[in-house]
Design a protein around this nucleic acid. Structure first.
Length: 272
DNA sequence: ATTCTATGTCGAA
DNA sequence: TCGACCTAGAATA
């Protein structure tokens, strides 16, 4: 789940549940014991996200809690006082709600300067309203790296992960092995605008949905419209392309699986 | 019941 | 380039 839309959605949910409320804070598992204890009894100001990073602000404290979910991390926000099960790194609670964090790559207190340094390493985030395609263009247009690699580089664009990468390249019929410097400005603008639409939609729906209704597979008169979890190419190796029917291809690129349609997109440099 | 796999990132070799 | 991190749903048996 954790691409940028997940973190922005969590920021919204945590803000709705806890902003303005005094919380109890603990680290049942113990690996955030010191930080959790300092936060205990404070009031949440807000939670916010940039790319795949989540920050929780508290009053009376200049540090913020920085959370990165990594591949496995999950937040569970619920009402009531559920029993602690498994490894809970950080639990925050008010009279109504409980939020449990499990398996994060990072859960730590960061001083203002450290937050700023982290933000400075991130490229523009499509989910931040009003961010123009222009901001990423200098890095894209000068790079010899493939666009498939650039989209996953958080210092170029913040928040895109393996699903959005594959799907946005397919939707725009872009060869994933196109070098950044070979991409036209119009192509980049189209990719960016599509990321804005898809990822903003992902925040609202709480899941990634990329298949246009007219391209969605129909498995019978009862099942109309987009199927939950359906994708054009992501994780569809060998299955027919929803648009042209050619088998979806896959290759490992930088330790991540890349998926594409060889007919709709091509991928000259990956042909073997 | 057990094994596999993943929407991510870092640091050592 | 590879292993570590260390969760949970999906896939396999």
């Amino acid at each position: 789940m954790p691409e940028g839309h997940t973190l922005h959605r969590l920021a919204r949910d945590l803000t709705r549940a806890f902003a303005g409320h005094t919380i109890s804070s603990l680290s049942p598992q113990g690996r955030f014991a010191e930080g959790a204890e300092r936060v205990d009894g404070m009031t949440v100001t807000s939670a916010w996200a940039r790319g795949k990073h989540l920050f929780v602000e508290l009053d009376e404290m200049v540090e913020q809690v920085h959370v990165h979910l990594g591949l496995f991390g999950k937040w569970k926000v619920s009402t009531g006082d559920p029993e602690i099960t498994g490894q809970v790194r950080w639990r925050i609670q008010d009279d109504v709600s409980t939020a449990d964090l499990r398996g994060p790559t990072a859960c730590e207190l960061l001083a203002p300067g450290e937050v700023e340094a982290l933000l400075n390493r991130l490229g523009p985030d499509p989910i931040v309203p009003g961010t123009p395609a222009e901001e990423a263009w200098p890095r894209i247009s000068r790079s010899r790296a493939w666009i498939a690699t650039l989209l996953m580089d958080q210092s170029v664009v913040a928040g895109v992960g393996n699903v959005y990468r594959a799907e946005v390249l397919f939707r725009n019929r872009i060869d994933p092995t196109t070098e950044g410097r070979e991409l036209s400005r119009a192509q980049w603008d189209a990719i960016w605008d599509d990321l804005v639409v898809l990822m903003t939609d992902g925040v609202r729906k709480g899941r990634i949905e990329t298949v246009r209704p007219e391209d969605s597979q129909r498995s019978g008169p009862q099942k109309r419209g987009r199927r939950r979890g359906e994708s054009y190419v992501y994780k569809r190796t060998g299955e027919p392309c929803l648009v042209c029917g050619a088998p979806v291809q896959t290759a490992v690129l930088g330790a991540r699986n890349l998926f594409w349609c060889p007919s709709c997109q091509g991928a000259a440099r990956l042909d073997r």
